[in-house]
Nucleic acid binder design. Structure first.
Lengths: 238, 238
DNA sequence: CGTAGTCTTGAATGACCTCAAACGCTGTGG
DNA sequence: CCACAGCGTTTGAGGTCATTCAAGACTACG
């Protein structure tokens, strides 16, 4: 029996924003903490959604697999974010895999507890709606990108999104703060790892990024933005 | 001042499912009915989201426009469906255009009324969560399709989705029950109207569809499914 | 030190886009 | 009633971006 989690963990989570101390205690009381070593699955596509989840520490990759085995990375989850919660309110099956790409600590709430919480504290439902709304919007943007933009721009957009979500300042620029392979980027942008590799190589030779094995550092974010927005590269005067 | 709408209009709307008569009356009392002739905009991308909407009759196209003017059709809304409601809970700006593709009757609720309703009747919030969850899932599927499948399969999937949502049985097969141009299909699938036209022509010569000006009839839905699922076409014995 | 996973790079093919032109409905106004 | 304009559609030809196929190099780890 793990020790009861600290209510302070929920502070700062968008899902529980604006709640009083009593409500937070209520929520934390129903939560179950769990550890997931890097590389393990937290839940699997098609499995019944027994619980909603929130990440305390680590990084989780949400991956959908198509009928023919094609994989698409739906998003990466960072500390403080909820995931796998929506399935409770739809058909009750997880629509994707959740894989720990770093050692993870998570809280989970059994489905019944989650719906109860939302009934007792409507603010939680509203927060959930807002979070999901944001994700829906992001997904719409990605759909538009994949549907209308060239590969290079899509990769630029994907990296910028990751920088915003998981960027960490280092001497050389901004580093994406978890292991990220070319394959991952390819599955985020609807292309192949070959094309991603070529693109990153080209950028590397232009000094825009530095990248190695499962690791990417952006040296010139503005240049990446220029590519993403399809601006002329390095517009000198005139 | 239009006459107060009939509470019966809300019956059968997923957003108000499971509510008592009093709650329905409450909701209907705050709603404002409106008419939108075919071709007019109901709201516009970037405009403040003053209200949430529900369609009574007609058909609405939700279109997102990118920075360079590229358009993507996010979805079609049919009678009974809500739309443009999520913006209230996120940044307060509509993320896309809503255009009446047929003469429309809609109800709308001012933003404040919508949040009030959800607080008074948590069931509405839960319903909204479920609806949005379904849309998020659909969007994930489309993203996967656009990212991994060839154009022909994507078009097949798009048509099948439209059939499910707006199919009407006719002598020749199943008709998509509103004006739908090649351009629309192209913007749903991330391709060009030229490719859509070629594809439909090919299918027409195989007797799978019949299509004309802004109109599509599917004669052999199973053949379309076979294309969508990438099965061998018409697998005879063996 | 071998093995497996990640990454790089080259060459060839092809799916789809772009460019271009023409056709046929539909509705309008003379 | 007919002529015409506008829009949606069809179809061809050429070009290209990105995939596919293929081979090899690098790195981490047991």
């Amino acid at each position: 029996m793990p020790p009861p989690p600290d209510p302070a963990l929920l502070r700062g989570m968008p899902l529980f924003a604006g709640l009083g101390a009593d409500a937070l205690a209520d929520a934390v009381g129903l939560a179950r903490p769990r550890l997931h070593p890097r590389g393990t699955a937290i839940f699997t596509q098609g499995e019944p959604a027994a619980a909603g989840h929130a990440l305390i520490d680590g990084r989780v990759k949400i991956v959908q697999t198509g009928p023919d085995g094609q994989q698409v990375v739906m998003r990466f989850i960072g500390p403080g974010e909820m995931f796998g919660t929506l399935a409770i309110f739809t058909d009750g099956l997880y629509p994707a895999d959740a894989v720990a790409v770093a050692d993870c600590v998570e809280l989970s709430w059994p489905a019944a507890a989650m719906t109860e919480l939302m009934d007792r504290h409507p603010m939680i439902a509203r927060n959930a709606l807002s979070i999901i709304g944001g994700r829906l919007r992001e997904l719409q943007n990605r759909l538009r990108e994949v549907a209308t933009e060239r590969v290079e721009r899509r990769i630029a957009h994907a990296l910028l999104r990751l920088v915003r979500q998981a960027g960490r300042r280092v001497e050389a620029g901004v580093e994406i703060d978890f292991p990220l392979s070319r394959q991952d980027v390819a599955e985020m942008t609807g292309t192949t790892l070959h094309t991603v590799s070529r693109t990153l190589s080209a950028w590397e030779s232009q000094g825009i990024v530095e990248s190695g094995r499962q690791q990417v550092v952006i040296r010139k974010p503005h240049a990446l933005v220029a590519i993403a927005e399809d601006l002329p590269p390095v517009p000198k005067r005139e």
